[in-house]
Design a binder for these strands. Structure first.
Length: 367
DNA sequence: AACACGGGGAC
DNA sequence: GTCCCAGTGTT
């Protein structure tokens, strides 16, 4: 690397022009057809961007189609019940996104006359929309000159610059946001930003990137340094914590007991079978489970046989969930303002938004 | 700066 | 199994 290049990591104007040209030309022939690329409706772009947060394109496709069919416009979403929104979000995870989406739609109706805002700062002020999502919506829908930085472009830019530190830490983020802004063209920002993500997603992949097919390989510093495989630096290994939990299916004739998860807890707003942690497998004693159930629901019941055991992960926890039936419930349901309890008919469980484990249990009961 | 928040795709 | 995914909000 020469002295002028090392004085600043940010490229000069000729480099930028070439980069923009190559990126846009490549994207013109390589863009995937995705449901949210059918038009430039900011509402649709917004829905897709929220769904795509920490969620892969392949997973989002079906959810997006169903969601748009149910709520074609902002006003439809704003007018819906939160329960309906959550039901359509079931299985996608990060359910706060759905609730903030719903709240934002109502805010748009109340404060922006039902029109998705045009101004970057107004977009950024909506719940669930941060710097990336605001930039993505405004650039993609309006061609606003707003930079973006997310998983694909973090990796892409780190390689272009041969940035060897962790690009997700504060210094890396500062540099890469600056870079993302620096390379923006003066027109076609919509295509340009989407092209960057497409390139990161399809060519500049985490493992075995297809540098041979990359339109900007000659501009890539990591490639020149033969360090593509070492950049970005591997993240610290996630330290998982094993947990044992129990879910109780309390039956009363053709009904089962459900509990709505409260604010500030996991799956807030969703329904689930009464569920709690136990210290270890050794504590799966029916007496202890019964008293836990009594404490949480007010009901006394005998813990019955094990329905199933589900292993799943939630953020940093690896959970082994033992599901037991409970019969002959007696006593009065506890009135709990923060987490309502209801009896739900087994054949109506499809109307409730359940966590994925809850849905697995529900499916067993329907058989 | 560190953490919580879900679930599944891909290898 | 492990890593990763078109991040945001809170502490």
């Amino acid at each position: 690397m020469d002295a002028s290049a090392s004085s600043s990591p940010l490229p000069d104007a000729p480099w930028r022009r070439k980069f923009q040209r190559q990126i846009l030309a490549w994207y013109a022939g390589a863009a995937r057809h995705l449901p949210w690329r059918e038009n430039r409706d900011p509402y649709r772009i917004w829905i897709s961007e929220i769904m795509l947060q920490q969620t892969q394109v392949a997973t989002v496709r079906g959810y997006f189609q169903r969601f748009i069919a149910a709520f074609p416009m902002v006003a439809d979403l704003a007018a819906a019940d939160e329960a309906e929104v959550l039901r359509l979000w079931e299985g996608l995870g990060y359910y706060r996104r759905a609730r903030q989406l719903h709240a934002a739609a109502q805010e748009i109706v109340a404060e922006h006359d039902g029109q998705f805002p045009r101004d970057f700062d107004d977009v950024l002020a909506l719940p669930g929309i941060g710097r990336y999502t605001a930039g993505a919506i405004c650039s993609i829908a309006y061609d606003a000159q707003a930079p973006i930085l997310e998983a694909n472009t973090i990796r892409l830019h780190a390689r272009l610059l041969a940035y060897r530190e962790d690009p997700t830490k504060t210094p890396g983020q500062r540099l890469l946001w600056q870079f993302a802004e620096h390379i923006l063209p003066t027109s076609d920002v919509s295509s340009f930003n989407q092209a960057l993500m497409e390139l990161g997603s399809e060519i500049c992949t985490p493992r075995n990137p297809q540098c041979d097919a990359c339109p900007v390989a000659t501009l890539c510093q990591a490639r020149q340094e033969n360090a593509v495989a070492q950049i970005p630096a591997p993240k610290k290994k996630m330290q998982y914590e094993d947990r044992v939990e129990v879910a109780i299916v309390v039956r009363r004739k053709k009904e089962v007991l459900l509990r709505q998860c409260g604010e500030g807890e996991r799956w807030a707003g969703l329904w689930d079978f009464p569920r709690f942690q136990v210290a270890s497998e050794a504590d799966l004693v029916s007496g202890q489970l019964a008293s836990q159930l009594q404490e949480r629901t007010g009901l006394s019941a005998a813990i019955g046989s094990r329905l199933t055991t589900i292993k799943h992960g939630v953020t940093r926890y690896r959970i082994t969930l033992h599901c037991h039936e409970a019969e002959r419930a007696s006593g009065r349901l506890r009135k709990d303002e923060t987490a309502p309890l209801v009896w739900a008919a087994v054949d109506q469980l499809h109307d409730f938004a359940l966590s994925t484990t809850g849905r697995k249990i529900a499916r067993l009961l329907a058989k």
